[in-house]
Design a binder for these strands. Sequence first.
DNA 1: CTGAAAGCGCTTACAG
DNA 2: CTGAAAGCGCTTACAG
Lengths: 343, 343
Amino acid sequence: MSKKPSLKDIAQRLGVSTALVSYVLNNKKENRIGKEIATRIRQVASELNYQPNRMAQGLKTNRTRTLGLIVADIANPFSAALARAVEDEAEQQGYTVIFGSSDENPAKCSQLIDTLLNRQVDGLLIAPPAGMEAKLTALQQQRTPFVLLDRYYPSLHTSYVALNNYQAMYHAVEHLLSSGYHRIGLVTFDTTLFHMAERGRGYLTALRDHELPTRKSWLKAVDPCNAAIETAKAIRELTTGAHPVDAVVFASNMLTLAGLQQLIRLHVRVPDELAVVGFDETDAYGLFYAPPTYIQQPVSEMSQQATRILLDMLDAPDRIMQVNLPANLIVQVSSLPQSAVHG
Amino acid sequence: MSKKPSLKDIAQRLGVSTALVSYVLNNKKENRIGKEIATRIRQVASELNYQPNRMAQGLKTNRTRTLGLIVADIANPFSAALARAVEDEAEQQGYTVIFGSSDENPAKCSQLIDTLLNRQVDGLLIAPPAGMEAKLTALQQQRTPFVLLDRYYPSLHTSYVALNNYQAMYHAVEHLLSSGYHRIGLVTFDTTLFHMAERGRGYLTALRDHELPTRKSWLKAVDPCNAAIETAKAIRELTTGAHPVDAVVFASNMLTLAGLQQLIRLHVRVPDELAVVGFDETDAYGLFYAPPTYIQQPVSEMSQQATRILLDMLDAPDRIMQVNLPANLIVQVSSLPQSAVHG
DNA sequence: CTGAAAGCGCTTACAG
DNA sequence: CTGAAAGCGCTTACAG
């Protein structure tokens, strides 16, 4: 790269100090600086296409106007959608974002946090994997601004923006009940992550509130590392066996995808033989013969709010904010009332 | 954030100069520095959990170990997959990456380039929209290292890593021909982007090489801004009308998705009534009743090579490298031989 | 109204 | 073998 113009270059051209130039370009002390000199400085700056060196600025002000974003896997559509919304909101506020994928690995996530902090990001947006409590507590002690995104720990008093997972799942189950399905299975992940636990709790509570039995064999907790195969197995067990279900809810987009694929393989007709409710929005749903009903997360709003809260925290890292956003249930044909299906 | 330890802190603790500390921590002048003092410095550094301030380092060395990545839209699975592979390769080399989405808008892309350069990224990885020639030429003149990813301009002598789009499409068409389909349509984007033109050229050349007629009405160029609706229309026209096709190739993942959805809507049976070849890999394909044959791009390899080339260019910005990677045709049921379908 | 000067946390040519 | 000193490009408290 050819040498970029610096404050000094502008100052020299006009025979003034770099201080003066800095002041006018930053709109400081506006009232106290001569109009003519100010306009001339601005003019030369734009002639030279002056761009301040952010590193020098950052060194001085300890602000980089850069945010760090850690998602589970940027290649996952849900993570990618989060990232996109963060990008847009950050850009609007004059911030750029550095990202990293944790792969649901707490060691990698901690490492990533250190790397980003090292890069002097002003704050962090984190969708943490399980087992990050200690690291996050440490972050909080050193007053690093961060807000948790999508996932959080009820035991930790940190800022977060997440879905109201309990209510989302409760609502989905009630929808199935009101459509005439009473033997409802759940396919979720085997994880300690709170947001997944909440989805499970929503499922169980909804059934109990309607005085329906809950069966252990209807709640399938699948190993995240082996999701496709275990989901396929779960579906087989749920649909055959002594107590087959008449509806299934999936607790994530990956589980929904794997589940629907297995239903195609097994030639289980949806919703005739089995009603289905998926989680998250995916392009893929459009290719399923019976467009699935699904729980839609307000992804953009989630990211937007999280970014805004983080930006606020930059000036007041102790002002913590906790937000649980409501989900939207998009009803399509995969959960049509039984009467409509069988009648 | 609490104050981070600096070189000075370490130096003061041991009563040495910051220069010495800097030398040992950077493994410079190794042979000329006393062993004991070196180990003591390292010890104190790790005790204090010393992390060099990258801004100060960067200000001095003019290197940030940060790469800029510009994709069309990070929320698009193809872009997201590119980003993920860039991230992994960059991380391995000790680099972090800042990203941005151009939304296929050259003005936004130029703006993004400026912002990232402003952030002092060492180099850029760009999947450019149409109309970026001038900006890229300017970049090259100021010797900013960059490599084009996925797309490039044949008129520009820049580094790039992309698919061999011509060959990929040629191959796909030949596959359909050898499966007994001879009336083959193409749904592509109406754009000046070279990689799309190449896909069109591969399609036409393959047909001509086999002495088959090409019809204007079989080549549908869809407005990118209105892809879903126009693709649906294109499919209707291709399958009805005076000269219906017996096979369709799609030139991108979004077109494939939109096309398959329309085929479901129109109850066109694949491959019985219409054979299909898609572009790119998507989770979604698994939910289509007739798993589609598709052109698979070596996304990871593409990103990996591009990142490596960029890293090389950091030291020699004039050493330009151009790579066209071969595609992989994944054959599934959507393009089964006609004999198998109708026999 | 304007500017000289110190300093952010590093690196490195230079001198001993 | 080791360190004093300059400087990267900014910002800002301070003094006029």
